[in-house]
Computed example of a mutant assay.
Amino acid sequence: MNKEVLKKSLNNWLQGASMGIVVGLIPGAILGTLTAPFLGKGGIMALIAGAIVAYQFCVPFMVGYFTALQFKLNGIESAVLAGAAFLGSGALKFVDKGWTIKGTGDLINTMLTVAIALVLIKLYNNRWKSLNIVVLPLFGGVLPGLLGLLCLPAVSGFTALLGSLIKHLTTVQPLIMAVLISIIFSLIIVTPLSSVAIAYAVSISGLAAGAANLGIVATVFTLVCGSYMVNPKGITFSLFFAGPKLLMANYLQNLIMTVPLVINAAVVGVFAYLFNIQGTTQSAGFGITGLAGPLNAYTFMSGSSLINWLILLLVFVVVPLVVSIFTHSLLTKVGLYKAEIYQYQRADK
């Protein structure tokens, strides 16, 4: 396998996982906070709340499905890949003579299982087409799923350790960690990596989740300020909904964008610390999309509702917007980069 093929395969794998995770988790990120109080209370709202929670259980399947689309697998290959992803996620456990589903499982292990399944499916390569319906579920589904389960304890142990380390550092060095996490997530969101997957993988919460959301918001406003003068207004406006990944190709081809992204994310990270902006694992990674970040942060705040909303308006809109306008104006004026690096290029051109 040459370097270009490997690079394309890696990108397809990351893109598939990213799409599956976002599609599976965004309903909960947008509506989960609003509907959570109705869970278990009966009535139509309880049914809606339950459906939103249950939808998240489909994430491993979706990771497998979208990855299959990226690799252009056929129907049965796609099905067994999705099945392997669910099995390897570890979400399904046998407890007390019954089966239980625990959230989305371990998403890093899900991605690892998908990679194993892809290799096995490609190795099989439809050698005996008449036996595909027998061979593929076993060789491309159950076997990689089993291998994924064998890897699960080590992978889960590592992610739990990483999550504990982040939680510890946000306690002993909250300002430094808020700034670092804000910067990290501001950059992750413009790469093929999934900010949602990373948030779930390390189970960040509290101040870390709030800083992660603000880092993504900083990136959104950075791209909006850059895009405003060089793109149709529809492209700029869609950044608030489609997210920064809309200009991912621009970033990967113009890494100088890292400078304003880091500066802006560092500033909002400080504000996350100053106002103790918090969040949940479910909301971290979405930023301002669907108001997931602000709504979740609000639930952790006490005191006057008016003051709290003004604080959220300040840290989620005013500060990142003002800082982004300032850095973009300054850096283009000194000639560090030209505004054209933000010009959106359609993939079909």
Rank of each mutant, 00 (worst) to 15 (best):
D106L: 01
Q70H: 12
G83A: 13
I52L: 12
T104M: 06
I108P: 01
G42A: 03
M62N: 06
P60N: 02
L92R: 05
P60Y: 00
G103E: 04
F57Q: 12
C58E: 11
A54G: 03
F38D: 11
G83I: 00
K97N: 15
G103K: 10
M62Y: 10
A46V: 07
I101W: 02
V95R: 13
D96V: 05
V59S: 07
F66Q: 11
M62Q: 07
F61Y: 11
K93V: 07
G90A: 02
L92E: 06
L73N: 04
N74A: 06
Y65Q: 03
F71Y: 11
L92S: 10
L39I: 11
V63P: 00
F61W: 05
I101R: 06
S78A: 14
L39S: 08
G43S: 03
L47P: 07
A84P: 10
F38Y: 15
M45V: 12
A49C: 05
V53D: 09
F61R: 03
G83S: 03
Q70T: 01
D106Q: 09
G42R: 03
T104V: 13
Q56G: 14
V59L: 09
G90V: 02
F38I: 08
L107R: 00
M111Y: 04
F66C: 04
T110L: 04
V80G: 07
G64I: 12
L47Q: 12
G83V: 12
L39P: 10
Y55C: 05
T104P: 07
T67Y: 01
M62F: 15
Q70M: 13
A46N: 08
K41Q: 10
F57N: 14
F94P: 04
Q56I: 14
K102A: 14
